[in-house]
């Protein structure tokens, strides 16, 4: 752990951290839009489209609505982005710099809260009733998916032999057991909600509440939020890969890892494009009953397997 501070800075800013994950994230955004377009019989945007969007937003004017709390309104996006970058840094260092860093699973799970929190706080501080609705929906969505997500994490912890160390979890059995597979399914559903895409794009439902918490954002802060969303599109599939699919791998195995990532991304996009948006009460119900039941079965099986020494459970 004797890493110098400037190495931290380098890791944080460039390689597994900000710049690298931003590039991957923007690519993921493009893949998302392109695949969506192909599903809808369209051509889709050019490769650099996400970059153009960001550059343009950065150049544009920043507006401040009168009812907003200026400080919170402007700084919420930064906190969200910082949390996302930190999560990307943790996950990236586990997957790319196997030996240099270790990460902690619970820390990671909590860091992944920060982006949603930023959206909630930002929406709430914009002084707009419609974005307040969006904030409340995002919070309700967190409450909904938190329960199964925590259970899935617990399942992973049991299966990996009670370790919280991400490196050990990567080396663990992942989804290669009944409980692991169920937990993978649960996590995938939760990731859909964490990304706030259809069928769980309830907080930002454009046709209901005009993009919810983001209603009042423009220019640079909006660009930061968009960057954060791009990062999440990189982080969350990577999170699933790290926990369940044995990480990205080393050397040539990395190609397989990239394949895993693209596959997960496409699954997310496919779910997004073949479902309508749920209502918030339906989403909460869905998570608290069906998904939690599934996650409970997973955790129960994992505990049983642990107690009786059955490795395939």
């Amino acid at each position: 752990m004797a890493t110098d501070w400037y190495m931290y800075l380098l890791y944080f800013l460039i390689f597994p951290g900000f710049i690298f994950s931003l590039l991957v994230g923007l690519l993921a955004v493009w893949i998302d839009r392109k695949v969506t377009a192909r599903i809808q019989w369209r051509v889709g945007p050019p490769l650099l489209q996400p970059v153009y969007d960001l550059v343009k937003l950065i150049g544009k004017e920043v507006l401040l609505p009168v009812g907003a709390q200026p400080l919170v309104f402007l700084f919420a996006p930064l906190v969200g982005l910082a949390g996302a970058v930190l999560a990307a840094f943790l996950l990236g260092s586990v997957n790319f710099l196997q030996s240099s860093f270790v990460g902690d699973l619970i820390v990671l799970v909590y860091l992944l809260f920060l982006p949603s929190l930023a959206i909630i706080i930002g929406g709430s501080a914009s002084g707009n009733p419609i974005s307040a609705i969006g904030s409340s929906r995002e919070m309700k969505l967190i409450l909904a998916y938190e329960l199964p997500l925590a259970l899935a994490v617990i399942t992973v912890i049991i299966n990996a032999g009670f370790t919280l160390n991400l490196n050990n979890i990567v080396a663990g059995p992942g989804a290669a057991s009944v409980s692991g597979f169920l937990a993978l399914l649960v996590t995938l559903i939760c990731v859909q909600a964490k990304l706030a895409v259809v069928p769980f794009d309830i907080p930002e439902a454009e046709t209901e509440i005009m993009e919810g918490p983001l209603v009042e954002y423009s220019g640079l802060p909006l660009a930061i939020f968009k960057t954060m969303e791009a990062l999440l599109l990189y982080i969350l599939p990577l999170y699933v890969i790290t926990l369940f699919l044995g990480g990205l791998g080393e050397g040539w195995w990395m190609l397989l890892g990239v394949l895993k990532y693209v596959l997960l991304l496409v699954i997310i996009i496919l779910i997004k494009n073949t479902n309508p948006r749920l209502r918030i009460d339906q989403a909460v119900n869905f998570f608290w009953t069906k998904v939690t039941a599934l996650a409970l079965i997973a955790a129960g099986l994992a505990a049983l397997g642990e107690i009786y020494g059955v490795s395939w459970l």
Binding site: K56, K60, L63, E206, T207, M210, E211, L214, V215, E216, Y217, S218, L222
Partner: peptide, 8 residues
């Protein structure tokens, strides 16, 4: 887009 704040 759904709000003029995002519009060009």
């Amino acid at each position: 887009v759904g709000t003029p704040r995002h519009a060009d």
